[in-house]
Simulated assay, not measured.
Amino acid sequence: MRVFFRKAAAIMAAAVITASAAVSCSSKSSFSSDPNNLIGGDLPDDYSKDLEDMPYGGEYQKFEAGDNDFPMGIDMDPRFVTIDEASALTNYFYSVNNQDVESFKKAVHPDLIKYRLENSEYSTEKEFLDAEYELLKQYTGSDFTFDYILIDGRLKDTEGAFEQYDKLVETAIPGCNITSRNMYMVDVTYHKPNDGGSYSLRYRFGDYMNIAIYTIDGKAYVIS
């Protein structure tokens, strides 16, 4: 596994409806009943309507490209997603879409990039990103431009949910200081050349992408 797009390809090839991250740590049904999320869930009888008590989805904020130096627009609940985490996510998708090495380096820890390249057939970050873009074209059907990232939920830190990511970080970035780790349900909209429509990766993959973001030594990184 190199990035969550690789896992998405394997999942779609097997026609399995599940998350396209490395490991699906929560099924859609379990997420829907999670009281820490509003999306698709039933509200408990003692549910508070005060914003500070509302679960994910109680407040949404849209950031345009350029806000907070984000290279892409993003919709999220700012009570749960930090600006630094949003920066990592927007830079990640922007880097894949535009094969932009500098954005890639902002989104992924340098030691993790080095580890991934050393364990792949690619010798440079540009080759790696070129391959990811070409892989995505198999699902979009043509060249594409990402429009917006939508973070539709934060998954609970259930037992074993982060085990694979923890092991990856321990191997690639030994001795680092992890101050937080979160798993987000992510969708991305995109358009095609000479096409006025708007499309969703979620529907192309069959489910949300579950993406892990770790804050390491004071900076948020996509772990993939």
Score class of each variant (00 low, 15 high):
Thr90Gln: 03
Lys156Cys: 12
Ile113Leu: 01
Lys28Trp: 08
Ser95Ala: 12
Ile113Ser: 01
Ala131Asp: 14
His191Thr: 14
Asp166Leu: 08
Gln164Ile: 12
Tyr165Arg: 00
Gly153Thr: 01
Ile223Val: 15
Ala8Arg: 01
Lys49Met: 10
Tyr184Cys: 05
Phe5Met: 12
Gly175Met: 04
Thr140Gln: 02
Ala13Asp: 13
Asn119Met: 04
Ser29Thr: 12
Leu129Glu: 12
Ile11Gln: 13
Ser142Cys: 01
Ser29Glu: 15
Met1Leu: 10
Asp77Leu: 06
Ser27Phe: 07
Val101Phe: 03
Lys106His: 02
Val186Gly: 01
Ile173Glu: 02
Met1Tyr: 10
Ala161Phe: 06
Tyr221Leu: 05
Ile74Pro: 03
Asp147Val: 10
Tyr115Cys: 02
Glu127His: 07
Tyr208Val: 07
Ser27Pro: 02
Ala21Asn: 15
Arg204Asp: 14
Asp147Pro: 00
Asp46Pro: 07
Phe128Val: 00
Phe31Val: 08
Ala8Lys: 04
Ala21Asp: 14
Leu201Asp: 01
Lys7Gln: 15
Gln99Ile: 12
Asp195Val: 03
Asp53Glu: 13
Lys114Glu: 10
Phe63Ala: 02
Leu51Thr: 11
Gly175Val: 07
Tyr148Arg: 12
Met183Ser: 11
Ala10Phe: 07
Ile151Tyr: 02
Ser48Thr: 05
Phe63Thr: 03
Tyr214Met: 05
Phe146Trp: 05
Ala131Ile: 01
Leu38Thr: 00
Val16Asp: 14
Ile17Trp: 04
Val188Arg: 09
Ser24Val: 05
Lys156Leu: 10
Lys106Ala: 05
Val186His: 02
Val3His: 06
Glu118Tyr: 03
Arg202Val: 01
Thr189Glu: 04
Ala161Ile: 02
Pro55Phe: 08
Glu52Thr: 05
Thr18Gln: 05
Asn36Ser: 13
Arg2Phe: 06
Leu201Pro: 02
Ile178Ser: 05
Asp42Gly: 08
Ala86Lys: 07
Gly57Asp: 06
Asp50His: 08
Ile17Lys: 14
Thr171Glu: 15
Pro78Arg: 03
Lys137Ser: 02
Met185Val: 13
Tyr139Gly: 04
Cys25Arg: 10
Ser95Gly: 07
Asn68Arg: 13
Leu112Arg: 11
Ala19Asn: 11
Tyr94Ile: 01
Arg116Val: 09
Glu134Trp: 06
Ile223Arg: 03
Ala88Arg: 09
Phe63Asn: 08
Tyr47Glu: 10
Ile83Cys: 00
Pro110Ile: 08
Tyr184Pro: 05
Ser123Asn: 12
Asn98Val: 00
Asp34His: 00
Val3Phe: 12
Cys176Ala: 15
Lys156Gln: 13
Phe63His: 12
Leu89Gln: 05
Lys126Asn: 14
Gln164Val: 14
Lys28His: 09
Glu159Phe: 09
Cys176Gln: 04
Ala161Pro: 01
Ile211Glu: 14
Phe4Trp: 11
Ala22Lys: 13
Gly40His: 07
Tyr208Thr: 08
